[in-house]
Design a protein around this nucleic acid. Structure first.
Length: 224
DNA sequence: ATCCCGAGGG
DNA sequence: CCCTCTGGAT
């Protein structure tokens, strides 16, 4: 068992090679959401859940023109807020999240976006993935956002020691990958894995034929 | 039908 | 651990 198992050093070396290939495949993968401050990024990221960045970007200009800061958003009329963010979907829950979130920012955090994982995830609508995006992009604090794409892609590439697990633990994936890459790579690497999952390594029919990673991918050709 | 750079609730 | 929440695009 231990003899046939790939050594950690070899596995880490392979992960780094595959990261380099991802960089060649997707030269311009940075935060698709344009923002001017941590509050705007936080709101835009909360809105981004299970939607496309295009829809989020279609509502944020009006949203931030009317509610430029936590104080004004905390006093927003719920139905008006719902109307503004309606195109992103999940508008009822997300409007409630934005209201509660901005109220909590004004009451508990002096109107500022907190800079720790525990404080961020205490906000309504903010999970670990969203918190890591905000930490990395707004504050330069390294974090590794794990979403469904990261779970799937890292499993197929076998970047996880527990890749056979049916229901992998996202926190464990985060820690495993952070253990193998320097902190300055985390945000960028996460974005590329997510982008790869969307563009090529789809859940149902992954496009292995056009994927440069297929040569070293243990799952290539075994799917779809 | 299935997917969108998820999170909260039961 | 499952489900729901939205609607538009493919």
């Amino acid at each position: 068992m231990a003899a046939s198992k790939e050594s950690k050093a070899r596995r880490v070396a392979r992960m780094h090679e595959e990261y380099a290939i991802l960089c060649e495949m997707y030269p311009d993968v940075y935060c698709a959401l344009h923002f001017h401050n941590p509050f705007e990024l936080l709101v835009a990221t909360v809105l981004s859940a299970q939607t496309t960045d295009k829809r989020v970007n279609s509502v944020t200009p009006e949203l931030f023109a009317i509610y430029p800061d936590p104080g004004s958003m905390a006093r927003a009329d719920p139905s008006r807020l719902e109307g503004i963010i309606h195109p992103v979907g999940f508008y009822h829950a997300k409007a409630a999240h934005l209201l509660g979130l901005s109220q909590m920012l004004t009451e508990d955090f002096d109107g500022r976006v907190p800079q720790t994982m525990d404080e961020l995830t205490s906000l309504p609508g903010v999970g670990r993935k969203t918190a890591n995006v905000v930490l990395g992009n707004a504050f330069g604090i390294p974090g590794f956002p794990v979403d469904t794409h990261v779970i799937r892609v890292t499993g197929r590439l076998r970047w996880r020691t527990d890749w056979r697990t049916t229901h992998p633990d996202p926190v464990r994936i985060e820690h495993e990958i952070c253990d193998c890459f320097p902190p300055e790579d985390w945000t960028d690497l996460s974005h590329r894995l997510i982008f790869h999952g969307r563009q090529t390594c789809h859940a149902r029919r992954p496009d292995c034929g056009s994927c440069p990673l297929a040569a070293s991918c243990p799952s290539a050709g075994t799917l779809g």
